[in-house]
Design a protein around this nucleic acid. Structure first.
Length: 585
RNA sequence: AGGGGAGUCGCCAAGCUGGUUAAGGCACAGGGUUUUGAUCCCUGCAUGCGAAGGUUCGAAUCCUUCCUCCCCUGCCA
C-alpha cells in the first residue's frame, strides 16, 4: 500500500484561484434563497452556507465520456474540498438535439461516479429550460437598455456582415431600430408570428471588435420545436452564450469552470452579467468563468461526432461497448469510479494542451483494482496436465487466499485432482532462455498445491502438444511444514478438470492502433480489428457464485468483470486490464 | 502588427508576489521481497525550465525580442 502522506496534496491553478477568492472574502455575504432565481429573490434570503458553488452543465445530447468525467470530478471535488456545493444542471437550450433519454443516462453516470446533487438539504438538479422565463426577462432588460436588437437579416447576410478574422464587420441595417420596435418584434417572435430563421435577437456590442464573439452575437433564435422539458411553451430559445452566464448567476455559482475553447467567450459572459447587474436583475458576487484544458488520451477518440460514428456504423456494439470511452462503457469494462478519481488526481488540471498516455489511465485502474479485487483462478487457454503418481480418485483440498495482501478477505478451498487444466503458455517443449515454467525435466509449483516435475508430453498428428505428464512431490504441499524444501522458480496456476466451470472470456484491447487516431486521414482506418478477442476458459467452481458487475483478478492474467449479458448457464467475463507483465516485454 | 491561450524530464505536472541541490506521478533502467515473471520496497532518471538578449549579488520565476503549438468568422455547445 502506498503511503498517502508521501504524495503532496494535488494543487492546480483553479484551486489557487478559489483559495485566493476565499482569502479575499469575496463570497462572505453571498445569499442563497434555496433555489435558483434573480437577485430580487436571493436578496431577502439568508447567507449561503455553501462557501463556493460549482456546476457540471452537460447538454443532454449524448452519453457522457471520459472527458466529462474530468469535469465532473473536478467540479464536485472542488465543492466538497471547499465546503461548497456542486449543481448538476442540464444545459438544454437547443431542443433540436436534446432528449430525455440522455438526461437519464447522464444522471446515472454522475451518480455512478459517486457524486450526489440531491440530499435532505438541497436539491441541486437543475434544467436551464426551467429558467426560460428569466432569460426572456433578461433579454427584455437588455432591449430596454438599448443593448439588444431584433435583426431581420438572413443568416447569410449576418455571416457576411460579421467580417473576418482580420476585417471588421458591418453594422446591421436594423441595428438602430427603436427600443419600442425591438420590444414589439421580440414579443412577436415569442408569440410565434415568425418562422424559424426569419429574425434573431442580437446583443448590441461592437461589430468592429477584434474578438469576433463580441460582434453583436445572436442571443435568441426562433425554433418551432417541442422541447423535452418545456414542451411547446416556447418557440424562441436562448443561445448558449447568453443563457450560460444567466444560468450560473441564477444558481449563484461562484466558479464557472469550462474548457479552453470558451476562453474567447469570457468577455461576453462578463458583459451579460454586468449589464444585467447594472439593471438590478443580478447582483455581486457575480460568477466567474475559468477555463482548463480538456482531456485527451492516446489511442482514444473523444469527439462526439466520432463516437456517434463508431456506434452508428457498428464498429462497436453500442454506447456501452466496453471499448467505448463512455462512462457507460467504462462501467461495463470494469473501470471503477475510484480509478477515475485516482487518474484525475494524477493528471492534474492546467491550461496546457496535453495528451495523456493511456498507460496512466490504465495504471490508475490497476492500482485500485489490485486493492479492491478478490483473486480467482481461471485457465484461459487450457492444456491438459496429468499427474502420473497422483491417486486416481483423490481430491486434495488446497487453501487459497482471496487476496495475497489482505488476509481479512479470507480464503477458499480449491480441489486438486489427478487431471488438471493449465495454461498452454506455461509449457514449452523447447523453452527459451530464462523460461522458468514447465518443460520436460523441470520442476514448478502448482500454485497453492504441490511441486511437480514434468516427465513428458503427448502430441497429436500435427505435433501439437495435447497433454503434459508429470509427477508430484508429496511432501511439498503449500502451507505444510517443509513444503519449501524444494525450491522452484516457477509457479503456475491450474484448475481441476473435474471440478471447474466453463466461462466465456472477452479480452478487450485498445480500439485504435495509433497514439492519436485523429491524425489519421480517416480515423476508422486506425481501428484495431483485434480489439475484442472471445474465448472459452475454465474457471474454478467458486466463480459460479459471482453476480453481474462483480470484479476479480484472475491470477496471473488480469482484472475481469461479470458482464450483464451473463446468465447462470453461461457466465461472461470482460477483461478490464491485464496485469503488468515484464516477461512479455 | 486580427483576437485569445499555451510552451518546465519520453507523457502529465507543481513551482512562476525572484533566493536551499527544479516537487510528485506515469514511463523507463537497475536491485530487494514474493507460492501471481503481479503487488510491495529501494535506487537511478532536467547544471535544465521553447530560443536569444537584458535587469539583478542571485531568474523557471521580472523586462525585451523571437520561435512553435492550440482556439475563434453556428440563428451549436
Amino acid at each position: 500500500m502506498k503511503n498517502d502522506n508521501a504524495t503532496p496534496p494535488p494543487t492546480n491553478f483553479i484551486r489557487n484561484i478559489i483559495e485566493k477568492n476565499l482569502a479575499d472574502n469575496l463570497y462572505q455575504h453571498k445569499k442563497w434563497s434555496g433555489k435558483p432565481g434573480p437577485e430580487i429573490e436571493h436578496a431577502k434570503a439568508p447567507e449561503d452556507t455553501a462557501r463556493i458553488r460549482t456546476r457540471f452543465p452537460p447538454e443532454p445530447n449524448g452519453y457522457l465520456h471520459f472527458g466529462h468525467a474530468k469535469s465532473i470530478i473536478l467540479n464536485f471535488n472542488l465543492a466538497e474540498d471547499y465546503q461548497g456545493r456542486c449543481h448538476l444542471r442540464f444545459d438544454d437550450t437547443n431542443p433540436e438535439k436534446e432528449s430525455e433519454e440522455y438526461v437519464n443516462s447522464i444522471i446515472d453516470s454522475v451518480r455512478w461516479l459517486g457524486y450526489e446533487f440531491q440530499d435532505e438539504k438541497e436539491n441541486n438538479l437543475y434544467f436551464a429550460s426551467d429558467y426560460f422565463d428569466y432569460m426572456y426577462e433578461a433579454a427584455v432588460v437588455l432591449i430596454k437598455a438599448d443593448l439588444a436588437y431584433v435583426d431581420k437579416q438572413t443568416p447569410e447576410e449576418i455571416r457576411l456582415n460579421r467580417g473576418t478574422l482580420t476585417e471588421p464587420g458591418k453594422d446591421s441595417p436594423f441595428r438602430n431600430q427603436s427600443v419600442e420596435d425591438n420590444l414589439t418584434l421580440f414579443e412577436a417572435m415569442k408569440q410565434g408570428k415568425y418562422a424559424d430563421g426569419e429574425m434573431v435577437l442580437r446583443a448590441k456590442i461592437n461589430m468592429a471588435s477584434p474578438n469576433i464573439n463580441l460582434r453583436d452575437p445572436a442571443i435568441y433564435r426562433i425554433r418551432h420545436v417541442t422541447h423535452h422539458n418545456s414542451g411547446d411553451k416556447w418557440c424562441i430559445y436562448p443561445m448558449y452564450t447568453f443563457a450560460h452566464p444567466i444560468e450560473d448567476a441564477l444558481e449563484k455559482i461562484t466558479h464557472s469552470i469550462c474548457t479552453l475553447e470558451f476562453e474567447d467567450q469570457r468577455p461576453f459572459y462578463d458583459w451579460v452579467l454586468k449589464k444585467l447587474a447594472d439593471a438590478g436583475f443580478l447582483a455581486k458576487p457575480l460568477p466567474k468563468q475559468h477555463e482548463f484544458s480538456r482531456l485527451n488520451l492516446t489511442h482514444v477518440v473523444l469527439s462526439k461526432r466520432k463516437l456517434i460514428q463508431l456506434v452508428d456504423e457498428g464498429h462497436v456494439h453500442g454506447w456501452d461497448d466496453p471499448r467505448m470511452p463512455t462512462l457507460v462503457g467504462a462501467k461495463r469494462r470494469g473501470y471503477p469510479p475510484s480509478g477515475f478519481k485516482l487518474f484525475m488526481d494524477r493528471i492534474g488540471v492546467s491550461k496546457a494542451d496535453s495528451v495523456i498516455d493511456y498507460q496512466v489511465f490504465e495504471d490508475a485502474m490497476r492500482e485500485v483494482l489490485n486493492h479492491e479485487c478478490d483473486r480467482r483462478i481461471a485457465v484461459l487457454n487450457p492444456l491438459k496436465l496429468v499427474i502420473h503418481n497422483f491417486p486416481e480418485n483423490h481430491i486434495e483440498l488446497c487453501e487459497v487466499p482471496n487476496h495475497p495482501q489482505d488476509s481479512e478477505r479470507g480464503s477458499r478451498q480449491v480441489k486438486l485432482t489427478k487431471e488438471l487444466w493449465i495454461e498452454k503458455e506455461d509449457f514449452e517443449v523447447n523453452p527459451p532462455p530464462k523460461f522458468f515454467r514447465l518443460f520436460p525435466g523441470n520442476q514448478v509449483r502448482l500454485r497453492y498445491g504441490f511441486v511437480i516435475e514434468c516427465t513428458g508430453y503427448e502430441t497429436d498428428d500435427q505435433g501439437k502438444v495435447i497433454k503434459v505428464l508429470c509427477d508430484y512431490l508429496p511432501d511439498t504441499k503449500s502451507g505444510t511444514p517443509g513444503s519449501d524444501a524444494v525450491k522452484v522458480k516457477g509457479n503456475i496456476h491450474w484448475v481441476s478438470a473435474q471440478f471447474s466451470t466453463s466461462v466465456v472470456i472477452r479480452n478487450y484491447d485498445r480500439l485504435f492502433h495509433s497514439d492519436n487516431p485523429n491524425d489519421a486521414e480517416n480515423f476508422l482506418d486506425d481501428i484495431n480489428q483485434n480489439s475484442i478477442q472471445m474465448s472459452e476458459a475454465v474457471c474454478e467452481e467458486h466463480i459460479t457464485q459471482a453476480s453481474i458487475g462483480d470484479q476479480f483478478q484472475f491470477e496471473r492474467h488480469g482484472y475481469y468483470i461479470v458482464d450483464p449479458e451473463s446468465s447462470t448457464e453461461q457466465m461472461i467475463f470482460n477483461r478490464t486490464a491485464t496485469l503488468r507483465d515484464i516477461w512479455q516485454k
